[in-house]
Simulated scan of single mutants.
Amino acid sequence: MLTQLDYLPDGLLQVEATELHTLIPGPTLIHLPGRRDVPLFVSILLHGNEDTGLKAIQDVLKKYQNASLPRALSLFIGNVEAARRGVRRLEGQLDYNRIWSAGNDDIAPEYRMTREVTEIMAQRGVFASIDIHNNSGLNPHYACINRLDDAFLHLSTMFSRIVVYFTSPKGVQSEAFAHLCPAVTLECGKPGGRSGVDHAAVFVEGALHLSDFPTHPVAKQDLDLFHSVAVVTVPKTVSLSIGAGESDLCLEERIDQYNFFELKTGTRLGYVANGNLIPLCTRNENGQDISAYYFEIKAGELITRRPVMPAMLTRDTRIIRQDCLCYLMERLSTLPTKI
């Protein structure tokens, strides 16, 4: 399932994500040399409709068409078939950012493919890992990490002072590579704009120029650190609409404007048809359903039961169904030495 190359296919620096299938057959790992041999790993298009990573890498590599890269680069291009159709993933297809669990014995070819990528990069002594994403709601650009380690924090704050520490969901690319090197996920806002592309390109080029990571902690004033404590999904049995409609749950029209704002107790998220049942599943890092801790229903309205800060709220019902409605976060005012 995995194709490995030691060169850039002709046209890769100009192609749109929807046309990648004309150049490569599927998931592809491309190794390019640089002045430093230990490679930087960059993964793009784990979700096929998130093309900022491709455009950012194209911008970076165009600068070095006639010069050596500062450091070797291993570029992983993920869900080419979903990119062809401009969707996160195809119906019935596994999510390419949920298949990286270390030691997973699943026989699906996607799991074997990600294990192969991880093993290849372990053998190459990967320097750092960057996974580039977009999201579908109104969110600032921010970085996500799976370890509260100085090197991880230094890498992430090169992209944004807003950093989210998370341990769920499992099976994400950054979690697998966190066992090998400092690893970060970049959230670059909605696809289609230049700001995310330019921001990611500057970050990747900066990472290529790094010789090592500082050993001192990141200064507190340079960091807004949050802990993702729960994921909120809408059960398949709950009908869903946005703004208006006859459904079990009708979310506020501009629900994504709540992202990265601390919502006060009693903030309305939407309306419900059944006043006795919270139409959400909110699971903490241990997998426990804690919906009633954060939400309640009053007079047919779904409201917050306590102050909470959401991220990645979206108005795209397809993505809500395929992934989640949002994540809930708490600010980390003190930083543990290691987690």
Rank of each mutant, 00 (worst) to 15 (best):
T3A: 02
Q14C: 03
Q14H: 12
V15L: 02
T18G: 08
T18F: 13
H21E: 00
T22M: 07
L23C: 02
P33T: 00
G34K: 01
G34S: 01
R35S: 12
L40Q: 04
H47F: 01
G48K: 07
E50L: 03
L54P: 00
L54Q: 07
Q58W: 10
D59L: 14
N66L: 07
A67E: 08
S68D: 11
L69I: 02
R71F: 06
A72D: 04
F76I: 08
R85H: 15
R88V: 01
L90M: 07
D95V: 09
A108N: 15
P109A: 12
R112A: 05
M121A: 10
M121I: 11
A122Q: 13
S129P: 04
S129M: 11
I130P: 04
G137Q: 02
L138M: 01
D149F: 05
S156K: 06
S160P: 05
R161E: 13
F166A: 08
S168W: 09
S174Y: 03
E175V: 03
H179A: 15
P191N: 04
V197M: 08
D198L: 15
A200H: 04
A200P: 08
A201W: 03
A201K: 00
F203G: 13
E205R: 08
G206F: 04
G206P: 04
A219N: 14
L225E: 01
V229D: 08
V229P: 03
V231D: 10
S241Q: 05
G243W: 12
G243T: 06
G245R: 06
C250A: 12
L251W: 02
Y258R: 01
L263Y: 08
T265H: 09
R268E: 15
Y271T: 15
G275H: 15
L280A: 04
L280P: 10
R283F: 10
E285V: 09
D289K: 05
I290M: 12
I297Y: 14
I297Q: 06
K298V: 14
A299G: 13
A299N: 15
E301G: 09
L302T: 09
L302F: 06
I303Q: 10
R305E: 06
P307M: 02
P310H: 13
M312T: 01
R318C: 13
Q322S: 09
C326Q: 00
L328K: 09
E330F: 05
L332G: 09
L332V: 14
T337C: 08
